[in-house]
Design a protein around this nucleic acid. Sequence first.
DNA 1: AGGAAAAATGTGCTCGAACACACTAAATTT
DNA 2: AAATTTAGTGTGTTCGAGCACATTTTTCCT
Lengths: 346, 346
Amino acid sequence: MDKKLTIKDIAQLAGVSKGTVDRVLHKRGKVSQKALDSINAVLEQADYEPNLIARNLKNNKIYSICVVLPNPESDSYWQPCIKGIEQAKKEFKAFNLSISSYYFDPEDTESFIAVNKSVLNLAPDAVLLAPLFYKEALDAVEKYTEQDILVNTFNNQLESEEIRNFVGQDLHQSGRVAAKLIHSIAEKGQIAIIHFDEKIKNAVHMQEKEKGFRNYFSQKENSDYEVTTLKLKRKNYETKLEDFLKENPKLTGIFITTSKAHQIAEIIDKTKNNTISLIGYDLLDKNISFLNKGTIDFLINQNPKQQVYLGLSFLVDHFIFGKEINPSTLLPIDIVNSENASYYME
Amino acid sequence: MDKKLTIKDIAQLAGVSKGTVDRVLHKRGKVSQKALDSINAVLEQADYEPNLIARNLKNNKIYSICVVLPNPESDSYWQPCIKGIEQAKKEFKAFNLSISSYYFDPEDTESFIAVNKSVLNLAPDAVLLAPLFYKEALDAVEKYTEQDILVNTFNNQLESEEIRNFVGQDLHQSGRVAAKLIHSIAEKGQIAIIHFDEKIKNAVHMQEKEKGFRNYFSQKENSDYEVTTLKLKRKNYETKLEDFLKENPKLTGIFITTSKAHQIAEIIDKTKNNTISLIGYDLLDKNISFLNKGTIDFLINQNPKQQVYLGLSFLVDHFIFGKEINPSTLLPIDIVNSENASYYME
DNA sequence: AGGAAAAATGTGCTCGAACACACTAAATTT
DNA sequence: AAATTTAGTGTGTTCGAGCACATTTTTCCT
């Protein structure tokens, strides 16, 4: 049972006191060359690792973390995030943490600004932010950083020097995954990319996915597929889609770039057209039900729960264990069909 | 900044000393009814959580964990496990852990017995075991348990009261996932299930997958598929498969129940037959290369790395944080194509 | 050489839980 | 009533890192 070396052990081996070793370890100077040499000699061959538990006992500060995300009641895509936050709370309750959530209205820029303002007033140690509104998010990040509040982001990428960590997916690659799936299951013919969302702020998301999707097919030389893009909004989407289906009888596949695949599936179902393959995003109950029915062939899991959970666990690693934060973490792009869906829904 | 309550705080609130509170918390008796009542009253409305960091600092025992698994050089399926172990070591180096690996020859029962014997002699605190040889594994588990060594398993399920935790996949469901994939991509016709492995000990694995696969199709009433099973061994498998292909010209899909899909793919490739869909297991380099080429359509990831990592992290949770161990953890059955493979290979 | 300043080094306390041990007060025995 | 057991309670030390402060040693100047 070879115990781990402590500062005291190192001190003894080097023939000095623990205070001196401590000064060397923390490079706080005031150490003679002689002592420095002997301590370094010991350290080099002794592979000392500080006991992080002991270190932490001393620093018994309570770290407060605020998670800022859209209200899951407005958009159920965010629902799993609550579970992710709960899991993190449970998992990390051993440490001195205070995690709280703050919701904004995903349709309302003002509410995003307001929520961030009030979180700023709380002066937490860190904020985990879903930066839905690009410009406003940059503003918020700047203000947080001014107050020395650490900001990590998830779900939406934000180009900022001040962001310490991003957890999310590579949307371009996500589009490629969808394209490969369509390529696997859809017959030769026409393929539609459907952007179905009111929200302008999702435009970047949708565009990146489209780019990836088209990129896949453009790399295949003898492509038997023709790719068209269709934009739908809540208003009149039914007749618009029905018209589109009539105008494009050779349609064999549809890629929906948002979580609204179930709304498309409903219409496809009505037309009793079994030859159109459907690929969409996110494991909403409504989507799953069409997946089980067979109308939707595959869903791609963007894993919002894991995004938040990982974002929080990185903060814990940083605050509690002093680990370096990885600037970017790209989650796997999970392919989901009716048979493996349950595993991704917890 | 409301700090967490300590034993001392509780003691003060209840008007006793920390020693008495400690006795109540650990139910060590020797406490008067009066003191017990007042302490319980405080505890009830104060939701005290012991500081696990402080507790751990005191109990500075080094927990030793042995991982017993097949030599990755004999079967590269196990290669990712090394990474999983390394990751766990890195992640948990803050705690007093000593994790070491022991390899046995997956073809040799005797080596399995021998390795377990020598691990038993090391008297670790816990063993994480890949119980490839059923009967011998049960023996080993019994001996470990006699010596009060905690045993968790991964990859292969073992029916034993003494196993505290299993991390792996639901093989039956895994077969269903494969069936659904075949159903999505293969044309009507004949489907072959190929069991390609010498090792009898994998028989249960392969059978469970076959059952799940057939179960899926038997639930579809108007099935346009006919499912046949073919067993192949290393010897003569080439000619045997070629004969099979000639005899079954209507073959549209193959499900390989082991990680040997690349060997089937090689032959299919030679025949220049593009109409046969291939589904296999595991992200071996050779399999990935056929996945990128398009010969293999999907791979199912059994996630050996995650299995070991999770198995170890459960042990840490148990030893360090006193958490209850979940008896069984079933990992997601990841569907992998050429576009999302990289995320599952670390 | 004497003394002050600067540099180097060591000591001691803290964090919270856990537990051994010392101690007090009540109960029982002689 | 004194002696002894036993129930109940409090005190003090430990774990390892970190840092303030005390102490010792060296350097430098008059």
